[in-house]
């Protein structure tokens, strides 16, 4: 089962920093990944509609109508994040931690994405995007809340775009309820994404919607300076040292927050399916 030898073998496909903060292999369960629920007060009616659509992630064996179970990178299950079948719909899964050392961290994962195979066609432009985010806050008063967001824009309005984007413009903050304790902001709204320089990348999609190939991704970030450093996806390296994150004044209940999120959006009236085989978050401390 979860033997030490097996764990070492599984970790060898990552390049972690010296301290492994979390290693999430979804053959062993949800590993702390749940759904991103929107903020509310008194009633769920107060929740921003863009968050109302979110649903719980699933443990998937990637089963398909024509070929049965595809399974994951080296086991049976992957985390699946699934949108509703409405063009523009999104879903987000989140894991909530805090940090004990404001230094370099490294996120690594193996991921893939497909649309729901409701038609016997390639469907390579049905998934709009897949991406990841951090939601971070400085430890002390006077600091900031910082939200690096990166997405792979696979397709938009039927065009197979295939490029990486980031977001630095902070969305409006709206109070929730009457008590003055809760706010909401739609940081994953479809507007204000910007292209990463030299950010085009062609990912292996395969030849029908039920054949799946996995991709490696690494993202380095410095919690001390709250700056992105570098990203790698498969064979491509991206210098992120000049790329900004969303930054806003620190909020009163989020000190040392280290949240990670994975999100997907659909470009058509088909469910987008974003699969994560495993995740390794490490730090230099």
């Amino acid at each position: 089962m979860h033997s030490q030898t097996n764990q070492i073998a599984k970790l060898s496909r990552f390049d972690p920093m010296p301290r492994i903060i979390t290693f999430d292999d979804f053959d062993y369960g949800f590993c702390g990944w749940g759904q991103l629920v929107g903020n509310y007060e008194q009633s769920l009616d107060a929740m921003n509609p863009s968050y109302q659509q979110h649903t719980h992630p699933q443990l998937s064996n990637l089963s398909h109508w024509d070929s049965g179970s595809h399974s994951s990178w080296d086991g049976t299950y992957a985390l699946k994040i699934q949108t509703r079948p409405v063009a523009g719909a999104r879903n987000v899964s989140v894991k909530r931690l805090t940090f004990r050392k404001a230094g370099p961290i490294r996120l690594e994962l193996y991921f893939t994405f497909k649309p729901e195979a409701t038609e016997p066609r390639l469907l390579e432009t049905d998934v709009r995007s897949v991406g990841f985010l951090f939601d971070l806050q400085d430890p002390d008063e006077g600091g900031n809340r910082v939200m690096p967001h990166i997405r792979f824009l696979n397709a938009e309005n039927g065009e197979h775009v295939q490029k990486w984007q980031f977001k630095r413009k902070s969305p409006p903050v709206t109070p929730v309820g009457e008590e003055g304790k809760t706010i909401t902001h739609d940081h994953l709204a479809p507007n204000d994404w910007e292209d990463l320089p030299n950010g085009h990348q062609k990912l292996c999609y395969n030849e029908i919607p039920t054949k799946v190939n996995w991709h490696y991704l690494r993202f380095d970030f410095d919690l001390e300076n709250m700056r992105m450093l570098e990203m790698q996806c498969n064979n491509r390296l991206f210098d992120l040292s000049q790329i900004d994150s969303m930054v806003m004044p620190a909020m009163k209940n989020l000190w040392c927050m280290l949240n990670m999120g994975f999100f997907t959006e659909t470009d058509t009236n088909k469910r987008a399916l974003y699969y994560i085989d495993s995740v390794c978050l490490s730090g230099d401390f």
Binding site: D45, H56, Q58, L59, Q82
Partner: peptide, 23 residues
């Protein structure tokens, strides 16, 4: 525990979103 429909108004023919749980 998976919350598969939250604060959804159901009318006419309706269903919850598919939830994969063969495990």
């Amino acid at each position: 525990t998976a919350v598969v429909a939250r604060n959804e108004l159901w009318q006419n023919q309706v269903s919850s979103e598919p939830y994969e749980c063969g495990w």
